[in-house]
């Protein structure tokens, strides 16, 4: 079973590397060098992709059970993505709007979490009293699945949208608090000594030492938060309903449109990567140790 999928893609990659050499023998050596450079970056993921597709194909044809084939899913994907902006009332909106609504909730909860989490993290990092007082609470709450907070949100806000945002807020806040306070604690004593010799006052201390020194840690916390938040929103929306990629998945499941769900999974993954790349770019822009 395992030898079959491994053999086939290997052959494919061989033919890819050989064909350009046969076409242009003059530049053969340079091309081969080039190909060997990009080989691990391009060919290996392609191999993986082919293996996955093959396994999928085998499962869909042999096991059946409602798992759609590759071709069927592809068609559904083209269909969904060819008209992503349509909007015929709240029950029939394009995939773009679904993603946008989910992103909106994530951004709202995430922004609120940053606004609360960063100051709390600063307090915890700079004051042992705060740290000792808050650490146990955070230790207990952090491992709880954010979805457990959904009923509390529904109770508090009596509406689904704020509840979903509340769940994202809870999801995002722990990594932000913990990374921010760790960043403050990790400020080298040297910087504090420089600040002391210069007699920086409290505001100057925050502006010239605390903020720039902890910014990389804060951004790391935000990047972690955003990644988890994007995972959690799908689950939260499945429970709350409304417009959003999570409820879209749930809705399609109720209509037994499994091919739509697979397309949605891929879209969710791609959006997740884009979010992470965006945060990575911001992180690199502000990381003084990388300069």
């Amino acid at each position: 079973m395992t030898s079959v999928p491994v053999d086939e893609p290997t052959n494919t990659s061989m033919s890819q590397t050989e064909s350009p050499i046969a076409i242009a023998p003059s530049a053969a050596s340079r091309l081969r060098e080039r190909l060997f450079q990009v080989l691990p970056d391009i060919v290996l993921p392609v191999i993986t992709l082919l293996v996955v597709l093959l396994v999928w194909h085998l499962i869909a044809t042999n096991l059946g059970g409602g798992i759609p084939g590759i071709g069927e899913t592809w068609e559904r994907g083209v269909e969904l993505l060819s008209d992503p902006f349509h909007s015929n009332g709240p029950n029939d909106m394009g995939i773009f709007w679904q993603v946008l609504y989910s992103l909106g909730r994530v951004m709202a909860g995430f922004t609120l979490a940053a606004l609360v989490g960063v100051p709390v993290g600063f307090l915890m990092g700079s004051s042992a009293i705060f740290r000792k007082g808050w650490a146990p609470l955070i230790q207990i709450l952090r491992p709880v699945s954010p979805l457990a907070w959904l009923p509390i949100g529904l109770l508090l806000f009596r509406a689904v949208d704020p509840s979903a945002i509340f769940v994202i807020f809870i999801t995002s806040i722990w990594p932000i608090i913990l990374n921010t306070s760790a960043g403050v604690v990790a400020i080298p004593n040297d910087y504090r000594n420089v600040a002391a010799v210069l007699r920086l006052n409290r505001i100057e201390m925050v502006r010239h030492i605390l903020l720039p020194a902890t910014l990389p840690h804060v951004l790391t916390g935000m990047r972690l938060s955003l990644g988890i938040a994007w995972m959690v929103i799908v689950a939260a929306e499945m429970l709350t309903g409304g417009i959003g990629i999570g409820f879209f998945v749930w809705d399609e499941w109720n209509n037994l449109n499994v091919s739509s769900i697979i397309v949605a999974i891929i879209i969710i993954g791609v959006v997740g990567i884009i979010l992470d790349l965006g945060m990575n770019m911001i992180q690199r822009r502000f990381d003084h140790s990388q300069r």
């Binding site: 080298p188 910087y191 000594n193 420089v194 010799v197 020194a213 003084h288």
Partner: peptide
């Protein structure tokens, strides 16, 4: 004013 052993410049 102190010149610290490991320069202690602010990297940002």
């Amino acid at each position: 004013a102190v010149v610290f052993q490991n320069h202690s410049l602010l990297p940002w």
